[in-house]
Design a protein around this nucleic acid. Structure first.
Lengths: 135, 135
DNA sequence: CAGTATCCGTCCGGATACTG
DNA sequence: CAGTATCCGGACGGATACTG
């Protein structure tokens, strides 16, 4: 029989519960663009245009939205230099650097296990197909 | 000036590129339910119904879909016991246990930093409001 | 018990146009 | 340069009904 592990080990928060605030934090973090933006900012400060070019495939809207969410959550700093043309620099806060270690680990894991995943998927799809046509 | 770090350090994969296969893997992993399902399975094998009850708020459809995706990617085992009523047990594969360490870290981080995030968000929202009404 | 099938509203995310 | 505003299709995800 399954028993729930000790949830109070770190403050009583439990992301498995739908109304726990940690579920919302998890929602924020488990996002492709969030992972990549934070990963891009780990080496250092970047401007908006630099981020847009680095995050291949992201639209202006999604980059703006992601950066706002991260700024609001206190993971990213936004520094505006009111020059003409305007210059905006983004960087990680200490909290952002903290979670950045985890975001990087996820991204690197994905990069390192492409073949494992692809092989498994091909095998799975082949089995599904052969079940439909047993010769 | 920003320079791209050495991408070839682990096989040439780069999730920042839109067509890199690792981007698809990242897409699979950066998902709330994926994180929670893998986290729930780390302590050991669980049945479908047990998972549904543990992952508060998940629907049958999303649980099935998530489990299929993970099974197809080779992260989860599905063991069917053709009894009546049927019994299906889910567990992590070695690959699943491997990424499970990272998924758990993300979830625990979320649980541990609720207050930091909430404080930052309240502060951000307060500033946005005062800018609209400078008295 | 562990699904599959279907319907349907929401909102994610892309494309485009415009601005300080 | 770094946004904002708007439109829109399609996927995501929930609710419900049915099944081996």
């Amino acid at each position: 029989m399954y028993t729930v592990p000790d949830l109070r080990a770190h403050g009583g928060a439990d992301a498995f519960l739908r109304n726990c605030a940690s579920r919302a934090v998890l929602d924020l973090l488990t996002n492709k663009w969030v992972c990549l933006v934070i990963g891009a900012l780990r080496p250092g400060t970047m401007r908006f245009g630099e981020l847009r070019r680095r995050l291949d495939g992201i639209t202006q809207k999604m980059l703006t939205q992601t950066l706002r969410d991260l700024e609001r959550a206190g993971l990213v700093n936004r520094d505006l230099y009111p020059s003409v043309p305007p210059k905006v620099e983004y960087s990680l806060t200490p909290l952002g650097e903290n979670v950045g270690v985890l975001m990087d680990a996820i991204r690197v894991w994905a990069e390192d296990h492409i073949e494992d995943i692809r092989t498994a998927q091909v095998t799975y799809d082949a089995k599904a197909t052969e079940e439909l046509q047993p010769i």
